[in-house]
Design a binder for these strands. Structure first.
Length: 172
DNA sequence: GCCAACGTTGGC
DNA sequence: GCCAACGTTGGC
């Protein structure tokens, strides 16, 4: 007899429409990404398991939003895309790096990196207070109180709302 | 610079 | 396995 799916089983999670990556612009900004060779950089140094798992779920071509944290104001600066899926983050094995992890073994690396390529700035910078003011973005990771995750998924409705918001006031 | 929120660590 | 202490993040 075919096994029934438990009614309690969560529905298969749709692949996110996009991802948000946080960066401190004083360290590495969206402009730095656009100025990088081939507008591409390795997104390294993520040291949180949940964020790492999101990195590992990213697929080549997935849209990415670059968010500036610890900035004045904080907010979304531009669009990018995933150009290389998760691979072992080399900085975990480099004792000279702040993100060095002496417990990680090359035979079973703990941490992952992806490569992202900058596409273009948003039509205008979207400050966090505007994101928080949009009801369609109430569930967005960066709008959550106390959210410190540096990588999170963006659902389709959120993605549309962000692009619409960026277009809206730029004309006024 | 403050402090709330949250993840990690380590003693038990 | 619990949970207090500690460190970090990040908005304000």
């Amino acid at each position: 007899m075919a096994k029934r799916t438990s009614p309690r089983a969560a529905p298969p999670q749709a692949h996110p429409a996009a991802w948000i990556l946080k960066t401190e612009p004083g360290v590495f900004s969206f402009a730095d990404l656009m100025a990088a060779r081939e507008r591409t950089t390795a997104w390294e140094g993520v040291r949180n398991y949940q964020a790492r798992n999101f990195l590992r779920a990213m697929r080549r071509g997935d849209p990415v939003l670059i968010y500036h944290s610890s900035a004045e104001p904080p907010g979304i600066a531009g669009r990018a895309e995933v150009v290389r899926e998760a691979y072992p983050d080399p900085t975990q094995f480099d004792a000279g790096q702040a993100s060095h992890d002496p417990r990680s073994r090359p035979s079973d690396p703990t941490w992952s990196a992806v490569d992202v390529r900058g596409i273009e700035p948003l039509a205008r910078f979207l400050p966090l207070d505007e994101l928080k003011a949009d009801p369609a973005l109430a569930t967005l990771g960066v709008c959550q109180r106390g959210s410190r995750l540096s990588v999170h998924p963006v659902q389709a409705g959120e993605w549309r709302a962000i692009l619409a918001l960026a277009k809206r006031k730029s004309r006024s």
